[in-house]
Amino acid sequence: MSHQQDRVGIACPACSPDLETVHEVLSTGGGRATVRCTECDHVHKTAIERERTVERDVVISQDGESLTASVEVPVDERVRVGEEFIVDTDEAIMQVRITDLETGPEQRATSAKGEAVQTFWTRAVDNVSVDITLHPRNGDRDRTRSITAYLPGDFEFVIGETMTLEDEEFTITDIHVREPAQERYPFPKLGEDGDTVEAKDVKRIYGYDESSDAWSAW
């Protein structure tokens, strides 16, 4: 899904006459397009059959706030909850993940053809906030506290690792995974050393507080 078709896979007469390569679309008109091969930079004209598309609303959730945009969707393309795409909003170009597909008044679906979708409900995943709950090692639950870290969506958390974020040092013990990202992980809650989760997939992180205050005895 995109606002315009700026890349296509076609044969290049200069470097790949028998196999498709990725081409950038430089201009279009009269049913033909001027394209440039990304492999050899050869510029040539070609006929491009464009898919029929529809414009649909996109609601983007980010850190408790929401904004709206629109996206062009091929009518026959099947879209699914959990898929990601790029949206060009008034504020910025954002990578989002589909969290719900609205197909009618109070009707939701996990999968549908583009033409059937009325509104894409999504969450921004290029930059995300991650909630982290820290427990003292002495088991004193009254000293449990929470922090929030703001990170790139592809930042990786590894269970068993000790790390410092927001000036806080902690060792990760468990990670709860967001829906619908859970299908990419063996369990909704991970707790084995070495298990890795990207920040955009994290619902909440639990860990041992390694700050000096957390070690003091009462």
Rank of each mutant, 00 (worst) to 15 (best):
I86P: 01
S70M: 08
G9E: 13
D41M: 08
G82Y: 09
E161P: 01
T34A: 10
T34R: 15
T53G: 02
R178C: 14
D195A: 12
H42L: 05
E91N: 13
T144G: 00
H3W: 13
D201E: 09
T119G: 04
E91Q: 14
V128S: 05
E115P: 15
K200L: 08
P136W: 06
P17T: 09
T68F: 08
M94N: 09
P186D: 09
H135W: 04
D174V: 03
R184G: 09
E39C: 03
Q4M: 14
K45E: 08
R204F: 01
I172S: 04
K189D: 01
S211A: 10
G114K: 15
T38V: 00
V158T: 15
V8Y: 04
F170R: 04
Q95V: 10
R184Q: 12
V25M: 04
S70I: 04
D90P: 11
E84S: 15
V125Q: 07
P13N: 11
I175W: 05
V177H: 07
T164V: 10
R143P: 00
L165A: 02
D126R: 13
A214K: 07
D195N: 13
Q4E: 11
R108H: 15
P188F: 05
G30W: 02
A116I: 03
E20M: 13
V8K: 03
A92F: 04
E72T: 01
A112Y: 09
I147H: 10
Q118E: 14
V158R: 14
P188L: 05
A69H: 05
G31R: 07
V87C: 10
H176Q: 14
G114F: 11
R7S: 12
R78I: 05
T53D: 00
D90T: 09
G9H: 12
V96C: 12
L67Y: 07
A69I: 08
E192Y: 08
K200I: 00
K203T: 04
I48C: 02
V58K: 07
E55Y: 09
V96K: 13
E20S: 13
Q182S: 07
G153V: 03
I172A: 04
P105L: 11
I60Y: 04
D131Y: 00
K113L: 14
D193G: 03
Q4G: 12
T103R: 12
A214N: 05
V59R: 14
S212H: 10
D63M: 02
K113M: 06
E51K: 15
L19D: 08
D201T: 03
T196Y: 01
R145E: 05
T173K: 07
